[in-house]
Simulated assay, not measured.
Amino acid sequence: MPRGLADKRGPEECDAAALLSLINSCDHFMVDRKKVTEVIKCRNEIMHSSEMKVSSTWLRDFHKKIQNFLNEFRNIPEIVAVYSRIEQLLTSDWAVHIPEEDQRDGRECEIGSYLSVSQVNEIEMELLKEKLQEIYRQAEEQEVFSEEISNQLEVVKEFLRNNEDLRNGLTEVMQKLDSLHLQHQKLDSKEAVIQTPEKKA
């Protein structure tokens, strides 16, 4: 398991990165490793995207790779149970359906292909939470806030400044990250003082 996750007691306490890593490295899972690594690659692409955006082509490709991956677990009842939900998310056009607005504009649409505001909010929240946890793990493992990590964090902060509803739901993880950042800054300051030679009188 990735560093920092050894204390997790079950899959429900792990994020996607940890589960994919476990599936990919554990011999207990009799799966096509190529299909797992393709999903891991997609997951890393979206998590490390500086703009947190993907194209329609990317989504279609991701859809195929997720389907291929899930087919490896088609005999597991729990996977079958959530398959339709996953399909709904992957085949949605990611437009938000607001009944009052759509009716007022005179637009006719199939509601089934749309996501509700709460669904979009839930998905955004989970993705951002995972991205922030990923940033935290990177900083913890490197024992330093590199420029890349700082830039990633700043992008998320900028996004959250414009999305108060999401910001409020991520207060705890943001405080945790800011605290780690502050610790690193203090350590850097101490090291700088130690390394600075004393001036001769």
Results as ranks from 00 to 15, higher is better:
Met1Lys: 04
Arg3His: 07
Leu5Met: 11
Ala6Tyr: 05
Asp7Cys: 05
Lys8Ser: 04
Pro11Thr: 02
Pro11Tyr: 02
Glu12Pro: 00
Glu13His: 00
Asp15Thr: 12
Asp15Tyr: 09
Asp15Lys: 04
Ala16Gly: 01
Asn24Cys: 11
Ser25Ile: 09
Cys26Pro: 03
Asp27Val: 01
Asp27Glu: 01
Asp27Ser: 02
His28Leu: 13
Phe29Cys: 12
Val31Leu: 07
Val31His: 09
Val31Pro: 14
Lys34Gly: 06
Lys34Asp: 14
Lys35Val: 11
Lys35Ser: 06
Val36Ile: 14
Glu38Arg: 15
Glu38Ser: 13
Val39Asp: 00
Val39Thr: 10
Arg43Asn: 11
Asn44Asp: 08
Asn44Cys: 00
Ile46Leu: 14
Ser49Leu: 08
Ser50Pro: 02
Ser50His: 10
Glu51Ser: 15
Met52Cys: 03
Met52Pro: 04
Val54Ser: 07
Ser56Asn: 12
Trp58Asn: 07
Leu59Gln: 15
Leu59Ala: 13
Arg60Lys: 14
Asp61Tyr: 05
His63Asp: 14
Lys64His: 09
Lys64Trp: 05
Lys65His: 11
Gln67Cys: 14
Phe69Ser: 07
Leu70Gly: 04
Arg74Ile: 12
Ile76Pro: 01
Pro77Trp: 02
Val80Lys: 02
Ala81Glu: 08
Tyr83Ala: 06
Arg85Gly: 00
Ile86Phe: 10
Leu89Met: 14
Leu90Tyr: 06
Leu90His: 13
Thr91Met: 05
Thr91Cys: 02
Thr91Lys: 04
Ser92Gln: 07
Asp93Pro: 04
Ile98Gln: 13
Glu100Cys: 02
Asp102Arg: 10
Gln103Ala: 06
Gln103Asn: 12
Arg104Pro: 01
Asp105Thr: 10
Arg107Leu: 13
Arg107Gln: 03
Arg107Tyr: 07
Cys109Thr: 09
Glu110Arg: 09
Glu110Pro: 00
Ile111Gly: 00
Gly112Thr: 02
Tyr114Lys: 13
Tyr114Glu: 01
Ser116Asp: 08
Val117His: 10
Ser118Cys: 11
Glu124Thr: 04
Met125Val: 00
Leu127Val: 12
Leu127Met: 15
Glu130Asn: 08
Leu132Ser: 03
Gln133Asp: 03
Glu134Ala: 14
Arg137Tyr: 06
Gln138Asn: 11
Gln138Tyr: 05
Glu141Arg: 12
Ser146Val: 13
Glu148Thr: 14
Ser150Leu: 15
Gln152Pro: 07
Gln152Met: 12
Leu153Arg: 06
Glu154Leu: 14
Lys157Asp: 01
Phe159Trp: 08
Leu160His: 09
Asn162Trp: 07
Asn163Leu: 08
Asn163Gln: 02
Asp165Thr: 11
Asp165Ser: 15
Asp165Val: 12
Arg167Glu: 05
Arg167His: 06
Arg167Ile: 02
Gly169Phe: 10
Leu170Thr: 09
Glu172Phe: 12
Lys176Phe: 06
Leu177Asn: 00
Asp178Ile: 04
Ser179Trp: 05
Ser179Ala: 09
His184Val: 04
Gln185Gly: 01
Leu187Gln: 03
Leu187Phe: 04
Asp188Thr: 01
Gln195Ile: 04
Thr196Gln: 06
Glu198Asp: 11
Glu198Tyr: 06
Lys200Asp: 03
